[in-house]
């Protein structure tokens, strides 16, 4: 991060090399629009470059800062285009991911753990979590969408998060 603050372009390239596909995949999953995902990816990394000096390490990892910005931009984009029919990309393939070979291994190792954790959740938990994470819905909106009691949805999300934390705990300490 210090290199980014020092306006070192190589640091920006390394950051993009490390997280470019993940940011693009997230934006694509949320928006269902490849063009929008490209724009969001570019703008997200650009914002990191411009605001590197504002980054506060005490508030979380760079990775989390980056993903939070990308997700927020993607959800805003979807909301702004609410009238447009959205197609969710459910499962981008590994084949697509390995088009950037230098990043493939990194993606596979983390994705293996995240996917293992996700598959450990119940279908109900995954559905509620996906509506919150990818569509930015509140628990009240999720309850309305799923036609379930508010308390049930809230509990389901909380339990899903606790289960994820149990499985992904080791990754939380990695940058």
């Amino acid at each position: 991060m210090a290199a980014l603050r020092a306006r070192d372009e190589r640091a920006l390239a390394r950051l993009y090399d490390r997280y470019g596909n993940a940011v693009y995949g997230l934006a694509l999953r949320v928006t269902g629009d490849a063009g929008a995902a490209e724009e969001i990816s570019l703008d997200t990394f650009w914002q990191v470059w411009q605001q590197a000096e504002r980054y506060d390490g005490a508030q979380g990892s760079v990775r989390n800062w980056l993903f939070t910005m990308a997700r927020s931009r993607a959800i805003d984009c979807v909301r702004a285009r609410a009238a447009r029919k959205r197609t969710i990309v459910d499962d981008p393939t590994e084949e697509a991911a390995v088009r950037r070979p230098e990043e493939a291994a990194e993606l596979i190792e983390r994705r293996a753990l995240v996917r293992a954790a996700m598959t450990g959740l119940s279908a109900d938990q995954r559905a509620a979590l996906a509506l919150a994470y990818y569509e930015g819905l509140s628990h009240a909106q999720i309850a309305e969408r799923l036609q379930e009691p508010l308390g049930t949805v809230k509990t389901r999300i909380r339990q899903a998060m606790i289960a994820l934390r149990r499985t992904l705990g080791p990754l939380l300490t990695l940058s």
Binding site: E9, L12, Y24
Partner: peptide, 28 residues
Amino acid sequence: WSELVGLMALEAPAAAPPDIGAALLARA
């Protein structure tokens, strides 16, 4: 909890078009 939410982004990576990296560097 926030770090955990961040990790969820890794669930579905997709190959970003190569010109994003180039355009980013050009901007920088």
